[in-house]
């Protein structure tokens, strides 16, 4: 039997920015606060009353030419026949070289357990015949996933139907990312960090504007 070749795409017009994917991922994989495997960026553009909001969900791009794999000093990162880039946490020595090498902010070093971690399309769920947690829960049916080797799979049909509309994030980085987007994903790609994990502060509302945020926050004081 030949191995499946897993692939994922995001149909951005369907995304409602609901964060179900981010939270499903964090619960499923027990991701510590401050770190992410799956993330949704927001961006507001335009001037009142013509203002529009865009969302960009980001996971590990499962790059065909993965910079993290090349950077790993212990050879703990491998790309499987099924197309998924995985970390062997047993041999990982948490140097963080993979985090610095990633153009998509996809990796982090778990501060408690001192191992690198990232999205692996919920491989443990795939083994049980389930979809990745983000795919299963997505209310807008934004995330298309499946076996690209099977022409009848959801992902194969989606890729065939929208072939000319699909884009990858930061193609100039040369990593050959395998996760694709339908819609103007590249308008938000500047928000996707390079060489460090997704910053938790990038969820703060002050970062939604396409303009640079200004500083300063604090606690409330209610006078009576």
């Amino acid at each position: 039997m030949t191995s499946p070749r897993y692939a994922m795409a995001f149909d951005l017009e369907r995304c409602t920015g609901c964060h179900a994917c981010s939270v499903a991922c964090k619960v499923e994989n027990e991701v510590p606060l401050g770190h992410y495997r799956t993330k949704v960026y927001y961006q507001d553009t335009g001037r009142f009353p013509k203002v529009h909001r865009s969302f960009l969900p980001v996971v590990c791009m499962q790059c065909a030419d993965a910079p993290c794999m090349k950077a790993c000093p212990t050879g703990s990162i491998q790309r499987g026949e099924d197309g998924i880039v995985r970390i062997d946490q047993g041999s990982c020595d948490a140097t963080g070289a993979c985090v610095s090498a990633c153009p998509y902010g996809a990796l982090y070093v778990d501060p408690g357990h001192q191992v690198a971690d990232k999205c692996d399309f919920c491989s443990h769920r795939l083994e049980a015949g389930l979809e990745p947690a983000c795919v299963e829960t997505c209310p807008g049916e934004t995330i298309v996933f499946g076996d690209a080797a099977d022409p009848e799979s959801k992902i194969s049909r989606f890729l065939a139907r929208h072939r000319d509309e699909l884009v990858a994030l930061k193609p100039e980085k040369g990593a050959s990312p395998q996760v694709l987007y339908r819609g103007d994903a590249r308008a938000l790609e500047a928000k996707v960090p390079e060489g460090r994990n997704h910053a938790p502060e990038s969820y703060e509302i002050e970062t939604w504007s396409a303009r640079a945020p200004e500083q300063g926050q604090g606690g409330a004081e209610v006078q009576r």
């Binding site: 179900a20 619960v27 049916e141």
Partner: peptide, 24 residues
């Protein structure tokens, strides 16, 4: 450890929002 949508719920067909996913 985990909560997912029940596919037999006619309203959700097994999907769930961030709040639902947060249940555990």
């Amino acid at each position: 450890r985990k909560v997912a949508g029940n596919p037999l719920d006619p309203n959700t067909a097994g999907t769930l929002c961030a709040k639902g996913q947060s249940s555990p």
